[in-house]
């Protein structure tokens, strides 16, 4: 199996593209940065890649709402392209703004009758916050999270509060194991996940969601910001770990194709 090719989609305002490419490189993938305009011009472009990654940033300034404009562009012009990509058994990863775009585009969760099934809205704190969070995984089949039980990663967003249209939707997603990544208490306590451990007030402390196949994942935390041991905020206290937590996600993605 040749090295999996990773299409890292960038748009006006994308800003985590370089470090995300670096993370895929460390994991053994072959990333390339592709501008949304190139993709709109040639929607068949992704067929030459195995992994599509929508990195973090502020696509189109997050004007109107985070990920809204690019999400709509994908809805209007690239729906089929992405459906084909998923159909072909390939992987899609949306990080932070990428997760917001996936939610807005309907790629991750199909629309309910009355509109989108769920959303990522303003943090309860009402502001952008950069802080590290504990995460626990809760999905059997999510390709990216295989072999990972917990991770320690930073979040950096203003609109990351996961809210479903209604309780039924929440229950359905939960029951299907799609609420793949949750915020967990920092001190290991068992009574809930209060702010700031859950940094935005997400329902059921959801930090990441996957599709039923487990091959499409969106998450608010930034795994690409914890791929070197010196990224850890307390490495000067706790020592340099052998492997940084976020790297495993990228290795899982690359390894998924190597294992085939």
């Amino acid at each position: 199996m040749p090295t999996p090719r990773v299409l890292i989609l960038r748009a006006p305002g994308t800003n985590c593209d370089h470090e995300t490419a670096h993370a895929f490189e460390l994991a053994g993938g072959a990333p390339e940065l592709v501008h949304i305009n190139q993709l709109l011009e040639d929607p068949s472009l992704p067929s030459g890649y195995q992994i599509l990654c929508l990195p973090g940033g502020f696509s189109y300034g997050d004007d109107i709402a985070a990920g809204r404009i690019l999400g709509n562009q994908i809805r209007h012009h690239l729906q089929q392209t992405l459906a084909d990509f998923k159909e072909a058994g390939k992987l899609v990863l949306g990080i932070c703004n990428g997760f917001q775009i996936l939610m807005n585009s309907g790629i991750l969760l199909p629309d309910a009758e009355s509109g989108t099934s769920a959303t990522l809205t303003w943090n309860d704190s009402g502001k952008f916050e950069d802080r590290w969070v504990n995460l626990a995984t809760g999905s059997e089949n999510c390709v990216f999270l295989q072999g990972i039980e917990t991770m320690y990663l930073p979040v950096a967003h203003a609109e990351g509060k996961f809210v479903t249209r209604d309780q039924t939707m929440l229950d359905t997603l939960n029951g299907a194991g799609q609420l793949a990544l949750r915020y967990a208490p920092l001190n290991g306590s068992t009574d809930g996940v209060p702010y700031p451990d859950n940094p935005n007030g997400s329902e059921l402390h959801v930090a990441g969601v996957c599709d039923p196949t487990g091959r499409v994942l969106g998450l608010m935390p930034h795994p690409e910001r914890h791929v070197d041991p010196t990224h850890h905020p307390r490495w000067t206290r706790e020592g340099l770990k052998e492997q940084a937590d976020g790297l495993k996600m990228f290795q899982n993605a690359v390894g998924f194709f190597a294992a085939d």
Partner: peptide
């Protein structure tokens, strides 16, 4: 103030503006 700024984008953060056992 500090938390409202993204101080880790670009993936090169080594010593953050806030440090210590509780960051």
């Amino acid at each position: 103030v500090i938390r409202q700024y993204d101080h880790e984008v670009q993936g090169g953060s080594v010593i953050k503006p806030l440090v210590g056992v509780k960051n």
